[in-house]
Deep mutational scan, measured.
Amino acid sequence: KNAAKIVNEALNQGITLFVSDNKLKYKTNRDSIPSELLEEWKQHKQELIDFLTQLES
Score class of each variant (00 low, 15 high):
residue 1 K to F: 14
residue 1 K to R: 08
residue 1 K to I: 11
residue 1 K to P: 10
residue 2 N to Y: 08
residue 2 N to D: 15
residue 2 N to W: 08
residue 2 N to G: 12
residue 3 A to Y: 05
residue 4 A to C: 08
residue 4 A to P: 06
residue 4 A to F: 08
residue 5 K to S: 14
residue 5 K to C: 09
residue 5 K to I: 15
residue 5 K to M: 15
residue 6 I to V: 04
residue 6 I to P: 00
residue 6 I to N: 01
residue 7 V to S: 02
residue 7 V to Q: 03
residue 7 V to P: 00
residue 8 N to D: 13
residue 8 N to Q: 15
residue 8 N to E: 15
residue 9 E to H: 07
residue 9 E to N: 08
residue 9 E to P: 00
residue 9 E to Y: 07
residue 10 A to M: 04
residue 10 A to D: 00
residue 10 A to W: 02
residue 10 A to R: 00
residue 11 L to M: 09
residue 11 L to I: 10
residue 11 L to G: 05
residue 11 L to N: 07
residue 12 N to E: 15
residue 12 N to D: 14
residue 12 N to I: 14
residue 12 N to A: 15
residue 12 N to K: 14
residue 13 Q to Y: 12
residue 14 G to T: 02
residue 14 G to E: 05
residue 14 G to R: 04
residue 15 I to V: 07
residue 16 T to L: 13
residue 16 T to A: 06
residue 16 T to Q: 09
residue 17 L to A: 00
residue 17 L to G: 00
residue 18 F to Q: 03
residue 18 F to A: 03
residue 19 V to A: 05
residue 19 V to N: 02
residue 19 V to L: 07
residue 20 S to I: 15
residue 20 S to Q: 14
residue 21 D to S: 06
residue 21 D to H: 09
residue 21 D to E: 11
residue 21 D to Q: 07
residue 22 N to M: 08
residue 22 N to R: 06
residue 22 N to W: 05
residue 22 N to A: 07
residue 23 K to V: 12
residue 23 K to H: 08
residue 24 L to V: 05
residue 24 L to Q: 00
residue 24 L to E: 00
residue 24 L to G: 00
residue 25 K to T: 08
residue 25 K to V: 12
residue 26 Y to I: 04
residue 26 Y to C: 05
residue 27 K to M: 09
residue 27 K to Y: 09
residue 27 K to W: 09
residue 27 K to A: 10
residue 27 K to L: 08
residue 28 T to S: 10
residue 28 T to D: 03
residue 28 T to K: 03
residue 29 N to W: 08
residue 29 N to T: 11
residue 29 N to K: 09
residue 29 N to R: 06
residue 30 R to Q: 10
residue 30 R to A: 08
residue 30 R to E: 05
residue 30 R to P: 02
residue 30 R to M: 11
residue 31 D to H: 09
residue 31 D to L: 11
residue 31 D to T: 12
residue 31 D to G: 12
residue 32 S to G: 08
residue 32 S to H: 13
residue 33 I to F: 06
residue 33 I to N: 01
residue 33 I to M: 04
residue 33 I to T: 03
residue 33 I to W: 03
residue 33 I to K: 02
residue 34 P to Y: 03
residue 35 S to L: 14
residue 35 S to P: 15
residue 35 S to T: 13
residue 36 E to K: 09
residue 37 L to F: 08
residue 37 L to V: 06
residue 38 L to R: 06
residue 38 L to E: 07
residue 38 L to K: 06
residue 38 L to M: 12
residue 38 L to A: 06
residue 38 L to H: 05
residue 39 E to C: 06
residue 39 E to S: 09
residue 39 E to G: 06
residue 39 E to H: 08
residue 39 E to Y: 07
residue 40 E to H: 07
residue 40 E to N: 07
residue 41 W to G: 01
residue 41 W to S: 01
residue 41 W to D: 00
residue 41 W to P: 00
residue 42 K to L: 15
residue 42 K to S: 15
residue 42 K to I: 13
residue 42 K to G: 09
residue 43 Q to Y: 11
residue 43 Q to L: 13
residue 43 Q to H: 11
residue 43 Q to C: 06
residue 44 H to F: 12
residue 44 H to T: 03
residue 44 H to Y: 14
residue 44 H to P: 00
residue 44 H to V: 04
residue 45 K to T: 15
residue 45 K to G: 10
residue 45 K to Y: 15
residue 46 Q to Y: 08
residue 46 Q to R: 08
residue 47 E to Y: 06
residue 47 E to F: 05
residue 47 E to S: 08
residue 49 I to P: 00
residue 49 I to R: 02
residue 49 I to F: 06
residue 50 D to G: 06
residue 50 D to S: 12
residue 50 D to K: 10
residue 50 D to L: 11
residue 50 D to R: 10
residue 51 F to G: 00
residue 51 F to N: 02
residue 52 L to K: 00
residue 52 L to V: 02
residue 52 L to E: 00
residue 53 T to W: 06
residue 53 T to V: 12
residue 53 T to F: 06
residue 54 Q to D: 08
residue 55 L to V: 11
residue 55 L to Q: 14
residue 56 E to I: 12
residue 56 E to V: 12
residue 56 E to R: 03
residue 56 E to C: 08
residue 56 E to G: 14
residue 57 S to C: 09
residue 57 S to L: 13
residue 57 S to K: 04
residue 57 S to F: 13
residue 57 S to T: 13
